[in-house]
Design a protein around this nucleic acid. Sequence first.
DNA 1: CTATTTATGTATCAATCGATACATAAAGGA
DNA 2: TCCTTTATGTATCGATTGATACATAAATAG
Lengths: 221, 221
Amino acid sequence: MQKSEPPLENPEVPAARSRGRPRAFNRDMALAQATRLFWTKGYEATSIADLTQAMGIGSPSLYAAFGSKEALYAEALRYYGGQYEHLVWGGFLVAPTARAAVHALLMDSAKVLPGCTADMPRGCMVTLSAVGCEGHAELGELVQGARAVTLHRLLARIERAVSEGEISASIDTHGLARFVQTIQSGMSILARDGASRAELEDVAATAMLGWDARTRTMADR
Amino acid sequence: MQKSEPPLENPEVPAARSRGRPRAFNRDMALAQATRLFWTKGYEATSIADLTQAMGIGSPSLYAAFGSKEALYAEALRYYGGQYEHLVWGGFLVAPTARAAVHALLMDSAKVLPGCTADMPRGCMVTLSAVGCEGHAELGELVQGARAVTLHRLLARIERAVSEGEISASIDTHGLARFVQTIQSGMSILARDGASRAELEDVAATAMLGWDARTRTMADR
DNA sequence: CTATTTATGTATCAATCGATACATAAAGGA
DNA sequence: TCCTTTATGTATCGATTGATACATAAATAG
């Protein structure tokens, strides 16, 4: 179904240049362009013609390099994760407490989602793919799975906080994770509609008030 | 560009039956089907063939009755508002305080967004149209405007609460409205991914803790 | 140099897209 | 009953969709 990352030889070795005619385009550059298009317009609304034009190649080259439109979208989704995920999850992963982690996640989201770079689309590509993948079951499951990762990370971090005594064991960890996920998902929608970084930071701050009240319920932490 | 609701004669009079061959399908039924399709799959992913099949009519009848795919979507959006809006905004509009209004909005959203009826799509049609309307400028502005209505209503209600003394005048009303909007938008994403009513109600409850903490800041209400 | 391998550009595939032309069917007005 | 009006069904429009066939160009291996 998918190549699942071929043997993956030692990347330090330039891999002994292949034989035939060399590719006239940079695969990563092309993938970056495709990612931008899918991110901005969604899967259905992005045509092969759009893609080939943005990449500056012909359709045979696209199919030779990526296989199909669906496969290209899947690869774009991976590329998106590799390129942009750390902007939002970097602080979360290294924070010493669950509260600091969630605070970092929401504040970083507020910074990134409105499009921190000039040519960076607004909102999260994964979140905004919630609709429009109907009729493409595989892609639907793919993006739904990508969104599930958010909940899983939040839940794992909160449960760790419970085990470490940061948060009372009487807390509904799942509910708390769902709350944070809701905030972050909603921020993508607002960002796509033009909300500013300051506005989203304000939302994040209010959300943290909810977090504090919630984690105080029935325990003083 | 658009018919903008023709003269609209007195609806109480059956309007003296028209002359020619009567329509073989119920226009409202057909519009309901179209709304369901657009709601579920989005604008781009829904084809004319999908629509005519679901409505049980031929394409000429569709174009005679609705004009174009874009016009049909616009009408579906209006139909959606008329049919489902009160489920979410009914309690909000009659609540005596801003807090009660927001609480009602979020709790009703938690009830409706997971699909309260069996054949009711999950999530809000307007919210989930955030992406996929690129290249269709008119529709993009239409749904973006529809989403702006949410913020406007929230802001108006909160400002009224300030003027009535329910909420301190030192509160950032816009920020508070943005917070509630974020929660409700995020709930649509979670609902589309399968979140249950109980989960969303829990999210709403936590959001209200944020509301309470936020409205208490610098004033005791 | 020749042979092999790989990528490109052109040109096009069948299928589907949104949208109509046209003749026919079914109603009311005369 | 005939005429006008409106809606339907069939059949199809040009454009675009995702995806390829094919000949050619450009590289390496021998």
